[in-house]
Design a protein around this nucleic acid. Structure first.
Length: 274
DNA sequence: AGTACGTCCTGATCGC
DNA sequence: TGCGATCAGGACGTAC
């Protein structure tokens, strides 16, 4: 599932594709429920003729500032959330689309922006400003203002399992199920610990582990991109999610435990994570 | 306010 | 071999 590193990787791949400055010449929306604002028909009409001016990311959201429409509509913002299975990429219009491509946006250079989304959990918006769409989110984990104090404030008085809290974008934006587990593994913290029970020292470790887990993923994606790695993964295998039936903790060789926290698959080392 | 659960989706996998 | 049942989860809505 796309989390912060995957969304950022998508952004960088789009930048590398030379997509900036292209003009969108149409829209083929085959699953209207994906379009959250305005209607699918309004989005299709409103995006036509606009030029992509930039590609930004906030949390797991991809943000495309657009030029004004020649017909008169003012500047707009195209926003995409990849959901669980969403992928966004550029391909030649002549290339046969993957069967799970739900929407395509032809460009004036013979190529096409394609949104592939098997489970249809992705979301699209076309609005004046990102403020209309983006929920309250924590500082970006790589920014200086993602501090222990900020984290402590979010955790204060919350008895909910720390794993569940890490999935809230207002607490640690960009984390999803995989990197939440990975962060807790690196920090040596049990996923079911009540959040408010963590010590300041544990919060400091957790903050650094979040950054470390995301940094490691960035490295893999950057190397894949730089080397044009043909089989670059779309999601990472990590220490905590080895996807191996007989997984052992890489630190102590204890068998990793699989439980469910808030109906989410959760993996951890019962010996190292306390 | 904090907490917990249901909902949307369908490809992949499982069990009989 | 086939086919129905189950699983997976990001973010939001709803209920207590």
């Amino acid at each position: 599932m796309p989390e912060l590193p995957e969304v950022e990787n998508t952004r960088r791949n789009l930048v590398r594709s030379g997509f900036l400055g292209a003009t969108i010449t149409g829209a083929d929306i085959t699953w209207a429920n994906t379009v959250k604002k305005p209607s699918a028909a309004e989005l299709a009409g409103g995006i036509k003729g606009r030029t992509i001016q930039d590609i930004q990311r906030r949390g797991k959201y991809l943000i495309f500032p657009l030029s004004p429409q020649p017909s008169g509509a003012g500047p707009g913002t195209f926003i995409v959330h990849l959901g669980m299975t969403g992928r966004l990429y550029i391909q030649p219009q002549s290339q046969k689309p993957h069967p799970m491509v739900r929407h395509s946006f032809p460009l004036n250079d013979g190529r096409e922006l394609r949104f592939e989304d098997g489970r249809k959990f992705g979301k699209l918006w076309l609005v004046d400003s990102p403020d209309e769409v983006l929920p309250a989110m924590s500082p970006e984990p790589f920014d200086d203002d993602f501090t222990v104090e900020t984290l402590a404030e979010s955790f204060h008085g919350r008895k909910t399992p720390v794993k569940a809290l890490l999935l809230e974008q207002s607490v640690a934006c960009g984390l999803g199920n995989l990197y939440a587990d990975e962060s807790l593994f690196l920090a040596g913290i049990h996923p079911e610990r009540p959040a408010s029970g963590l010590s300041t020292g544990e919060l400091a470790r957790l903050r650094q582990s979040i950054i470390d887990a995301l940094t490691a993923a960035y490295g893999v994606y950057d190397r894949a991109r730089d080397q044009l790695w043909p089989n670059a993964p779309t999601a990472l295998t990590t220490w905590s999610h080895p996807r191996d039936e007989k997984a052992e903790c890489p630190n102590c060789q204890t068998n990793m435990a699989a439980i469910r926290v808030r109906a989410r698959g959760t993996y951890f080392c019962p010996k190292c994570q306390v």
